[in-house]
Amino acid sequence: MDNSGHRERLRTRFLKSGHDAFADHELLELLLMGVVLRRDVKPIAKALLSRFGNLNAVVAASIPELTNVDGVGESIAIHLKAVHAILLRGEKENITKQPVLSSWASLLNYLKLDLEHEKREQFRVLFLDKKLRLIKDEMMGDGTIDHAPVYPREIARRALELSSSSVVLVHNHPSGDAKPSPQDIVMTKKIITALEQIEVKVIDHIIVGFEGSVSMKAIGLC
């Protein structure tokens, strides 16, 4: 089937009207047209959105998850993952070049892009220098769907190795609900105590879920 006319109409509309005039599946079609040269990509775009729910979830999905969708091969999956990597890198650059407190929106966007659709719980620590700029974003716990082991002494040791003066704690809730659990509160207090002994400050503990994110500092728990 020759769908060159449909492709050209999409391109022309995008040039004239920009992305605001496009439905999600049409934006995804435009993206897929760059890697699928002849096939009709509309069914593939709609299948991806049906499977994952939204554009962020599509590009955040793993390669095995993507290639399980009808019509999606390795080339398409790699293309989509490259888009995700570009988005992440752009947001990470924003929080590396300036203090995180003045780029808080970029920090939240970075964490949302990276973690909101993660299927396993991760505990991450953003190690900051004296000017509150990012030194390193490091996973300190990788676990199951509802638990990631965390060791406060290991976080303290790593902070010393990196000459970090403060940290932002981060973890995700694969359930989607970012409300802190009693275990989250206890663990946060243990980490704060461990880091106080080496004069490293915990700026915040952010919990990420696909229903939103929660700052434990903002609700008085950090």
Score class of each variant (00 low, 15 high):
A105G: 12
E93M: 14
G90E: 15
K16R: 14
V100W: 14
E65L: 09
I203G: 07
I63T: 14
K119C: 11
K136N: 08
L101M: 15
K201Q: 10
V58E: 07
A82W: 05
R158E: 15
R39K: 13
G212N: 08
I207G: 08
Q122E: 15
K46M: 15
R153E: 13
P174F: 12
D142L: 11
V41S: 02
L30I: 03
R38Y: 03
K92R: 00
V125D: 07
A77Q: 08
A61L: 07
K16Y: 12
T188G: 07
V72D: 11
K42L: 11
L55Y: 03
K179C: 01
L32P: 00
V214D: 04
V186Y: 11
L10F: 02
I78C: 11
T96I: 01
D2E: 08
D177Y: 05
L37C: 00
K42M: 11
L111P: 07
R153S: 06
G220L: 05
Q197P: 01
I95Y: 04
R158T: 11
R11T: 06
M139E: 13
E91P: 01
S75F: 07
A47C: 10
V214S: 04
V59D: 08
D204W: 05
S102G: 05
E196Q: 13
C222Y: 01
R39Q: 13
A85C: 02
S50G: 13
V186K: 11
G71Y: 08
V168F: 10
A47Y: 15
V100E: 14
E26T: 02
K16W: 14
M187T: 13
V167A: 06
I207F: 03
K46I: 14
A77K: 08
R89D: 09
G176D: 13
V83L: 07
V208L: 10
S17C: 10
E26H: 03
A194I: 12
L66C: 12
V58I: 11
E199H: 12
R9A: 15
D114F: 00
S215I: 02
N68T: 11
L48D: 08
P182V: 00
A156L: 05
F22V: 04
L55H: 03
A148R: 13
F14T: 03
I63L: 14
T188R: 02
H171Q: 07
Y110H: 02
K136I: 03
E29P: 01
K81D: 15
C222A: 03
S62L: 13
P64D: 12
H25Q: 05
L107A: 09
T188I: 01
T96K: 04
P43T: 13
L88H: 00
A57R: 05
P180F: 01
T12R: 14
R11M: 11
L160K: 04
V167Y: 02
H84G: 05
I203N: 08
G18S: 10
H117P: 01
K189W: 01
A23K: 08
D177L: 05
S213N: 13
S166L: 05
V58R: 03
G141E: 04
L87W: 06
V208W: 07
L160C: 02
L80N: 06
A156Y: 03
L195Y: 10
L30T: 00
E65T: 08
L111C: 03
M33G: 02
E121R: 10
D2S: 09
E196P: 01
T193D: 15
E93Q: 13
K97F: 06
A23M: 09
